[in-house]
Amino acid sequence: MHSIPGRRLIMGLFLVFLLLPIYWLVNMSFKTNSEIVSTMTLWPHTPTLQHYKRIFTDESWYSGYINSLQYVILNTIISISVALPAAYAFSRYRFLGDKHLFFWLLSNRMAPAAVYALPFFNLYSAIGLFDTPWAVALAHCIFNVPLAVWILEGFVSGVPREIDETAFLDGYSFPRFFVKILVPLIASGIGVAAFFCFMFSWVELLLARTLTSVSAKPIAAIMTRTVSAAGMDWGLLAAAGVLTIIPGALVIWFVRNYIARGFALGRV
């Protein structure tokens, strides 16, 4: 790959631009509130862990993280398991309405969450799932299932068709072929798709907030509420924010080589 002159400088400046706001958040999370409000300091002069301690000991705070993780994991499992066979079908076969179906899926990935907020609220209240992780997990399927289908379709298409044919000649039944041969072959693709489902479910707030009230409230929603009630506890807000960044930062490491391909929906 050939790069442009001054690339180190450009890259450096851009990375600083990306990291500076995050640094400021981390910096604030270790300061006491009086230090935040009274002086302008580039690093915490009286570092404190009080905000983190509060989050980890107060149930109304840490339960938010558990709730969030619950629906995110549920959603990832549902999305991947329904998307796998569909990805295989789209990759290998032509059938009645396949192109229209694919476009319909695409359009759902692009549908604005704001449009669905109110009808989802009605729907999940009607079937008694309101304020459970299931409601949010199912609601997030609307954009994660299409995404998973796309990414997996790209990876399945990368598996040579001869493998299917050989397996069927060897007497594999379809389900057995699927589980024993195809799934291990596209394991990295499944990982990438799971990563993206995890990520988009993790970052979404509008639907998650609308579909929960007390017992399944996500951390993102708890942050917005507590802050306005407590008269701006900046340090606590910053600490909660830092803790929401950590899961994402951890999973990036595992998929670092596939990030770009995944964002291109498996089609680079």
Partner: peptide
């Protein structure tokens, strides 16, 4: 580092 902002919940991006 490039991917980091993409994984931050959107309201936390706002907060930041």
């Amino acid at each position: 580092i490039l991917a980091l902002p993409l994984l931050i919940p959107w309201n936390v991006v706002g907060t930041i």
